[in-house]
Amino acid sequence: MGRPLLNRRLSAFGTTIFAEMSALAATTGSINLGQGFPDTDGPDEVREAAVRALRDGHGNQYPPGPGIPELRTAIAEHQQRRYGLPYDPDREVLVTAGATEAIAASLLALLEPGDEVIALEPYYDSYAACIAMAGGTRVPVTLRPDPESLTYRLDLDELRAAVTDRTRLILLNSPHNPTGTVLTRDELAAVAELACERDLLVVTDEVYEHLVFDGGEHHPIAGFPGMRERTVTIGSAGKTFSFTGWKVGWVTAAPELVTAVRSAKQFLTYVSAGPFQYAVAEALRLPDSYFDALREDLGVKRDVLSAGLAESGFRVFRPSGTYFVTTDIRPLGESDGFAFCRALPERCGVVAIPNAVFYDHQDEGAPFVRFAFCKRTEVLEEAVTRLKQLAP
């Protein structure tokens, strides 16, 4: 054929690094701390709710396009109970095939070709692909590592300077993958003020909302003044309940925004995960003690892996949230995260992800590597033992 098969919008996107590194983990028998999925299932009562739905014939055929009423009601109740955000389950909630579809449908629905989208770099790789599919233009605002506090922070002046007359929306992610940054109330207030001032939409990926450590809090930007009518909030069951394979996500927003997102979503998957929707409806009504225990357990695992990485010679950026810890490999005498991660399985029997894949300007992320700590403690301890071979 005389022309490339893959359209130009997607020509820069091949096989994801997650597929590559997970395949490498399988072929080498390595511990996979690359992709962010737990190695244990979530609560038994939630799994049994899915089995019960299957047996009772609930959701085995097409569920309603917006999602089953039981789940939409549970999502609305969750937003009200946790954050004081009221949503009408019939007009302001949409169930999606995971958060990834919610992001894709939101961007496809809300962007015109040429619209600019500001995203906090480094960012989850699907953001770049979805912006491209919608014909938008990525405008990265980079979270920069502070070598003293060993955290990543947002430069609000840089964010303001990035807004132009072509900017349509800000794509936000807090708690932030891969850096583990949790935006503060003051930072979110500044983002909200900017969005209102420049009449911008905000699409906010909050799938790690329940994974905030050290007594910190997650603050949905939809709750700030002027944001209720311009914010699309995206949530997911996968990270909160450890059933990532179910692919149940959702959107909460004003009716006009939900209608727009649904217009795109209905031509992507139409519907999905019928029986699992019933189970997630029950999961969202679990007592606060479940969410507290999840956060405490993952906080301990974060500390186990972070300490082990530091002892192995990495510079560790302590995450305030999410499943992930970012490290600097330069103290190990390394500077190329891709080469380091591709060699690590043979060297130590551990798989990680090079952060450069999350950057438009890959040199910015070249010396940084991400590890996932959503694994059993004994698995993390074994990974740490193997990684200590790297210690100078």
Rank of each mutant, 00 (worst) to 15 (best):
R3E: 06
R9S: 12
M21N: 12
T28C: 05
P38V: 04
D39F: 09
D41G: 08
D41R: 07
E45Q: 08
N60I: 15
P63K: 04
G67P: 07
A76Y: 02
E77I: 05
R82P: 02
G84L: 06
L85A: 03
P89D: 14
E92R: 04
V95G: 02
T96L: 12
A97Q: 14
A102R: 04
S106I: 11
L107S: 14
E112A: 06
I118R: 00
I118E: 03
A119N: 11
D125G: 15
A128Q: 07
G136P: 11
P147E: 15
E148G: 11
L159G: 10
A162Y: 02
V163T: 06
T167K: 09
R168F: 10
T184H: 08
A192N: 07
A195E: 05
T204Y: 04
D214T: 00
T231K: 02
V232D: 01
G235I: 04
K247L: 12
L257A: 14
A260G: 08
V261W: 12
P287I: 07
S289R: 15
S289Y: 13
Y290E: 06
A293T: 04
L298Y: 07
D303P: 02
V304C: 01
L305W: 01
A307R: 03
A310W: 00
S312F: 02
F314N: 01
V316Q: 08
V316L: 10
R318I: 08
R318K: 11
G321A: 13
T322M: 00
Y323C: 03
P331R: 09
P331S: 11
A343N: 07
L344T: 05
L344G: 04
E346V: 07
N355T: 03
D360Y: 04
D363A: 11
A366E: 10
K375G: 05
A383W: 13
A383E: 13
